[in-house]
Computed example of a mutant assay.
Amino acid sequence: MDISHCDPKGLIHESYRMEGITASECRSIFLDWALSLPEGVDTRDAIEVLIVHLSSRFPGHPMTAVLEEGSVEMRAPKRRGGWRSRPRG
C-alpha cells in the first residue's frame, strides 16, 4: 500500500512537522485521520505502513507512540458485551 493512500489528507505527515506537539494533540489527529480514511482502506494496514515510513525517521515523536498504540489496539481481540454476550434461550 502506498503511503499517500494511508494518509490522503496528510494529517499524520503534518503532525510530524509540528514543533512542540503533545501526545494528546497527536491522539486527536489520529482520531481525525482514522475517521477520514477512504472506504476500502484497511486501518491496520494503513497504520503499519505509516509506522514503517515515518516512525523510523522520528522515533521519539509523540505521533510515533500513538501509531504504535493504535497498531497494538487494532490487533487486540475485542470483548463483546451487552446483549450479544448474553446466552440466548
Rank of each mutant, 00 (worst) to 15 (best):
R27F: 06
K9C: 02
W33M: 03
G10L: 06
D7Q: 04
L35D: 15
L11F: 07
Y16G: 04
C26A: 08
A23P: 01
R27P: 00
R17I: 03
H13N: 09
E14H: 11
E14T: 01
C26Q: 02
L31H: 11
T22P: 06
S28C: 08
E19T: 07
Y16S: 05
S28L: 14
H13E: 14
A23Y: 12
L11P: 04
S15A: 14
F30V: 07
S36C: 08
D7G: 01
T22E: 03
R27L: 07
E25S: 13
G20Y: 02
G20K: 07
I21W: 05
I29F: 04
S15V: 06
A23C: 08
L31M: 14
D32C: 09
L35Y: 10
M18F: 03
E19C: 00
T22C: 09
F30C: 10
D32Q: 14
P8G: 05
I12H: 05
L35N: 14
D32I: 08
G10D: 04
L35P: 02
M18A: 11
A34G: 06
C26M: 05
M18L: 13
L31Y: 11
E25R: 13
I12C: 03
A34C: 05
Y16H: 09
S36P: 02
W33K: 03
R27W: 09
D7A: 05
S28G: 10
L11N: 07
R27M: 10
A23E: 15
H13F: 12
S15C: 13
E14G: 06
S28T: 12
Y16R: 09
M18T: 13
I12T: 05
D7L: 06
L31A: 14
W33L: 05
P8N: 04
E14K: 15
S36V: 05
G20W: 06
D7N: 05
E19G: 02
T22L: 08
D7T: 01
T22S: 15
H13M: 12
A34D: 07
G20F: 02
F30R: 11
E25M: 12
S15Q: 07
P8Y: 05
T22M: 10
L35E: 15
S28R: 15
W33E: 07
I21S: 05
K9E: 13
E25V: 01
R27E: 15
I29E: 09
G20L: 06
L11I: 13
D32P: 00
K9R: 14
M18V: 14
K9S: 08
S24V: 09
I21F: 05
S24L: 12
S24H: 10
A23D: 10
A34K: 13
L11H: 02
W33P: 03
L11E: 09
S28H: 10
H13Y: 11
R17A: 13
